[in-house]
Write a protein that binds this DNA or RNA. Structure first.
Length: 463
RNA sequence: GGCCCCGUCGUCUAGCGGUUAGGAUCCAUGGUUUUCAUCCAUGUUACAGGAGUUCGAUUCUCCUCGGGGUCACCA
């Protein structure tokens, strides 16, 4: 069975790049009927917070990614790590190193001065002399001194490292006894039965270290997929300083989770020319072997397009519900269907849509000066007056077509173009020259309010 | 700097020895619309460079250049 995982460290919100690797892992597990597990890497107590863990879980809920089994917390697994540490010590595959921090940095400085690679010199590797009493030792693992380490990566292909270039006996437990990252990752991935590790390629150079741990503990290696980074506009690794990288920020801005997911799944991955993927299609078609080798630049132009698409295809019921987060209450509005139908193919985000709703249902507080100048000239006011008179005598005005008929009648009688009435009417109703169809606007706000707005404009606008 | 990865339109990408190098987005233009938006149509724009291999290279190899990642008692 395929088992994948997402293993964030809870130091902040869920990052957009994190969500993408999580999505890839999720999809691959789902496609294979396997499991997708969540593991919180909270070994560094100083930097972790419960709030961050909650934020990550909340983001998963919002986008609709579910995980199997219970969440694994590394902070709850200290005895397990201790046991494996002890095992390596007993087997002579790891050892205590009594080199202090100062001593270590001295060594490093010497090496740098000599233009050598900075590395631990192995002085306690097979040490049997007198051990310093005043120092808490770290535990180091015996790493191969030479030879090739080859990763059979599902994305990068065969990546070969020479042990002498990159390895030394690295620390697997700090002097306070706590295990380090490269050790716990390997232990947990193995113990949790992870068969495919899908993660950012910034971990590629960590992989040989983890392989050393796998080897020492006699665990089977998982299949690795190192997915290329997402870069910012400057071409650097996307970081928290690059604006909107918090997944939940997209919720606030009015993006739909299906749009975000669709956007993310196509960043670095493709399936022929297909651009639109429903959640089901993603689960069905995703394959990590189709992931691109090169990094991509984060650019949300396409996200806007996707979001507009998904808004257009959302039901009015869903939209009305989602809009409530923006202070829009439409449940009791008798013309909400007409309004939503008119607005949903105009908005790129829910936030935009909320603004549009307000622009229709609330009386304009001011009139755009340019619009007034353009629309309120000549006999504009006279035309509006004629229009209101026609409206007044009508009953049963409900549909946009009812209002359209009135406009058409007026235009025909006067022998004028639609623009003659449309422009000033638009300014009167909405305060500006753009917006949904006027017949729709009037149908939504009703005859009384329409007349009121027109009269306000006639008296309130200097022409 | 060492090691590793990467290099097709501005951006996301298809391509897997022979293509007028395709799609999407963005942008521009035209059409539709009383306006704006949507929608539809059309258009501009790309194989980093140089050697090889080959009848033939975007595709394979090497070099150069460019970009990125990583080198902790952080994860």
């Amino acid at each position: 069975m395929i088992v994948t995982r997402f293993a964030p460290s809870p130091t902040g919100y869920l990052h957009i790049g994190g969500l993408r690797t999580a999505l890839f892992s999720y999809l691959w597990a789902r496609k294979n009927g396997g499991k997708f597990l969540l593991r919180i890497e909270d070994t560094d107590e100083r930097r972790n917070s419960d709030a961050a863990t909650q934020a990550i879980i909340e983001a998963f809920e919002w986008v609709g990614l579910d995980y199997d089994d219970e969440i694994t917390y590394q902070s709850h697994r200290k005895e397990i790590y201790a046991a494996y540490l002890q095992q390596l010590l007993n087997e002579g595959k790891a050892y205590y190193c009594y080199m202090g921090k100062e001593e270590l940095s001295e060594l490093r400085e010497q090496q740098m001065a000599a233009k050598e690679r900075t590395r631990y010199d192995g002085r306690y590797r097979d040490f049997d002399g007198e051990v310093p009493q005043d120092i808490d030792p770290v535990i180091r693992i015996k790493a191969p001194l030479n030879g090739a380490m080859v990763i059979h990566d599902g994305i990068k292909g065969e990546v070969v490292f020479q042990a002498e270039d990159i390895l030394d006996d690295f620390i697997i437990a700090r002097s306070d006894g706590t295990p380090t990252y490269n050790f716990v990752v390997a232990v947990d991935d193995a113990l949790m039965g992870i068969t495919e590790v899908i993660r950012g390629d910034d971990h590629l150079s960590n992989t040989p270290k983890q392989m050393v741990v796998y080897e020492a503990l006699g665990f089977d290696l998982p299949k690795f997929y190192h997915v290329p980074m997402i870069h910012n506009q400057q071409g650097k690794k996307l970081s928290k300083r690059d604006g909107a990288t918090d997944v939940m920020a997209y919720k606030e801005m009015g993006y739909l989770p299906e749009a975000l997911l669709n956007f993310l799944v196509r960043l670095g991955w493709s399936h022929g020319d297909q651009e639109l993927f429903s959640f089901e299609e993603m689960c069905d078609l995703f394959d990590p072997n189709d992931i691109n080798k090169s990094a991509s630049i984060y650019n949300t132009e396409k996200l806007d397009w996707l979001n507009a698409h998904y808004i257009k295809n959302s039901s009015n019921t869903t939209l009305a519900m989602l809009l409530e987060a923006y202070g829009i209450t439409l449940v009791s509005h008798d013309k909400k269907e007409i309004l939503l139908d008119a607005l949903k193919d105009r908005a790129k985000t829910l936030q935009e849509m909320a603004t549009m709703v307000n622009e229709v249902i609330s009386t304009p507080k001011s009139y755009d000066t340019k619009a007034v100048k353009k629309a309120f000239k000549g006999d504009a006011k006279a035309i509006l007056e004629d229009f209101t008179m026609k409206l007044q005598v009508r009953d049963e005005m409900h549909l946009p077509s009812d209002y359209h008929d009135v406009m058409e009648e007026l235009v025909n009688e006067k022998g004028i173009g639609f623009g003659k009435i449309g422009q000033p009417l638009r300014v009167a109703l909405l305060g500006k020259l753009s917006g949904p169809g006027l017949d729709t606007v009037m149908a939504v706000i009703g005859k009384e309010e329409s007349v009121r707005r027109i009269e306000n404009a006639i008296t309130g606008i200097e022409s």
